[in-house]
Simulated assay, not measured.
Amino acid sequence: MKRLALILALWAAQVTAQDAGAQARAAAEALEAASVLLGTAEEAQDRVAALTDTVRAYEDGLAAMREGLRAATIRETELSRRLAGQEAEVARLLGALMAVGDRAATRTLIHPEGPLGAARSGMLVAAVTPGLADRASALRADLEEVTALRSLQQNAADTLQSGLSGVQTARTALSKAIAERTDLPRRFTEDPIRTAILISATETLQGFASGLAEISEDDSAPPLPAIEDRKGALPLPVRGVILHEAGDRDAAGVSRPGIVVATRPGALVTSPTAATIRYAGPLLDYGLVVILEPQADLMFVLAGLDTTFGEAGQVVPAGSPVGLMGGAAGNNLSPSGEGAGAGRSETLYIEVREGDVPEDPLRWFTTDKG
């Protein structure tokens, strides 16, 4: 982990895109901090928190490296095409530089128009030579930049591969730490029979969430703090970009009250605030679903996960991991597929229900970081 943090920091100093460089430096610092925290974590909860920070830092660092690699590739392609298009000009330039070089000095003394012609030619050469030298210097700089960019791309690809290995290791360790965690408070114990009946009796995600709200909790448990004052400022549960907003029609022409977030394969999904897990498991055709209840009559529905963490009834703190997205995290090393949504092959559906009425999730979550 420390080795990758150092590589990220060094790489950030060379990367072409300034934003990506700043993100890489921030990720390197986060990795260092997570490493320190992980080394001092003794309690299961502390270890889960440290590993969560580690996975997040890896994700941010790899995203920054991909963006920087993309920028470097675009720049290298642009320079290569420009140089290829100037091949004839370069040949003429080299010929002109050779003509005014030392080897041509003896020939310039013999001019058809005699000494006067030789003097005029000398004046012309003297006027043209600085321009030729400047053009040659510019071409040399472009060639050197192409060479440096190609080296940067190779180093970045190697670091990406190392980072992907590291984040997979961190995810595995996180899964193990969560499985061993026994210190989470509980608000209720799930009744598997009632839940199974509810699943079999519902045909939609909305119907299941509505029915789930009617299954009472243990009222003796203290309520979680209200989060109304944080409306609009909660972080998205996953790093990604908004693919569909509430009410948008998807490719099949279906309109849903929630949002769809495009994520990278294997992305970590966390609880945006302290919440009770009301349900975690498979549901209809949504894959794995986690339903969180941060306060009475408010539910966050997260659908489309590949792995879920936690059990129904547990109260998880803000930022606690509740699952992972699917896909093979190592399949997207090419920078050509980066961009707004490209390379983000997984999708998480997020729905907010307040008092059994769907509400636009973007009224709750901030999307400043994509």
Rank of each mutant, 00 (worst) to 15 (best):
Ala13Gln: 14
Leu51Met: 01
Glu359Phe: 01
Thr106Glu: 13
Glu32Asp: 12
Leu93Gln: 07
Ile350Met: 15
Arg256Cys: 05
Pro115Cys: 01
Ala246Asp: 02
Val260Ile: 12
Ala226Gln: 12
Gly85Ile: 02
Gly341Val: 05
Thr347Asn: 13
Leu234His: 01
Leu37Gly: 07
Gly163Gln: 04
Leu298Asn: 01
Gly343Trp: 02
Ala12Arg: 04
Ala329Pro: 10
Leu139Pro: 05
Phe300Met: 09
Arg249Met: 11
Ala148Leu: 10
Gly163Leu: 05
Thr77Pro: 00
Arg194Trp: 06
Ala274Asn: 03
Ala71Val: 05
Gly95Cys: 00
Leu160Trp: 10
Ala133Tyr: 08
Pro192Arg: 11
Asp142Ala: 12
Arg186Cys: 03
Lys369Phe: 14
Asp60Glu: 14
Ala280Asp: 02
Ile215Met: 14
Gly122Thr: 09
Ala303Val: 01
Tyr286Gln: 07
Arg3Ile: 11
Arg278Val: 04
Ile215Lys: 08
Ala252Tyr: 12
Arg47Cys: 06
Val290Tyr: 01
Ala41Arg: 00
Ala141His: 11
Arg186Thr: 06
Ala296Ser: 08
Ile197Tyr: 12
Pro321His: 04
Glu87Met: 08
Ala71Leu: 06
Lys369Glu: 12
Gln153Leu: 07
Ala84Trp: 03
Thr366Arg: 15
Ala17Thr: 03
Arg256Asp: 14
Ser35Leu: 08
Glu293Cys: 02
Pro115Met: 05
Gln153Ala: 13
Ala179Ser: 14
Ala340Lys: 08
Ala104Cys: 06
Ala156Pro: 05
Lys2Gln: 13
Ala119Trp: 00
Phe188Lys: 03
Pro225Arg: 10
Ala213Trp: 07
Leu243Asp: 13
